[in-house]
């Protein structure tokens, strides 16, 4: 056997390793957090909230919601919800807990929802929101960069968006991210 053949054989035994190496690079690329729909970096982070003024849900008492309400020097949670959104229903318990136990200021934006359905939904599950704006056309949702429900934003005292959660708030996010951040921003 010539040396060339010996090297050739050696290389053949290395081939599986080389193939796996290439594969591992692709896997690592695939794990890139930008590809993960649940951890979305938002271009809105650290931006002032977009200008908007929304009326209340038709047929409900109480004020609507506008950008000025978010610049009053208090940390605020803004939650986009709708009665047609199933995860919102699951999330609602967490929101009520936040509003009653933690005494967090919580505002809601009712996104693309029929007023009567939204009213019925709030009557059934309870209304944790201090103010609700009705975004019937979805225009304000576009300004905020909302692309699915539910979404939740945390606004700091100066009226800037500091955090965005795309999707339902689960207990883990609540305890490990949202609560500490609210504490930190409130100091």
């Amino acid at each position: 056997m010539t040396t060339g053949m010996v090297i050739g054989r050696r290389l053949a035994y290395l081939a599986p390793l080389a193939i796996f190496g290439i594969l591992a690079v692709y896997f690592a690329w695939g794990l890139n957090p930008d590809r993960d729909p649940r951890a979305l970096p938002s271009v809105m982070i650290d931006q002032p909230v977009p200008e908007f003024a929304l009326p209340p849900i038709a047929g409900m008492d109480g004020p609507g919601l506008s950008a000025a309400d978010l610049r009053t020097g208090e940390v605020t949670l803004v939650n986009f919800f709708a009665s047609w959104c199933v995860p919102c229903r699951l999330e609602h318990r967490v929101l009520i807990e936040l509003a009653t136990q933690d005494k967090v200021r919580l505002f809601g934006i009712n996104y693309k929802n029929k007023p009567e359905e939204a009213r019925a939904w709030l009557a059934e599950l309870g209304n944790p929101y201090g103010r609700i704006g009705a975004d019937t056309t979805g225009r304000v949702g576009i300004d905020w960069g909302v692309y699915g429900l539910p979404e939740t934003f945390i606004i700091d005292r100066s009226g800037r968006i500091r955090y965005r959660r795309a999707g339902q708030i689960d207990q883990q996010t609540l305890n490990e991210t949202i609560r500490p951040l609210i504490r930190e921003l409130s100091q």
């Binding site: 729909p37 649940r38 271009v43 995860p87 576009i142 905020w144 960069g145 692309y147 699915g148 339902q168």
Partner: peptide, 22 residues
Amino acid sequence: ENYMPREVTDALKKSGQWRDPT
């Protein structure tokens, strides 16, 4: 049931709608 398919998310991202606000 918690959220939408990734492909949908990407389609919405690609449509540029959620970048507009800035």
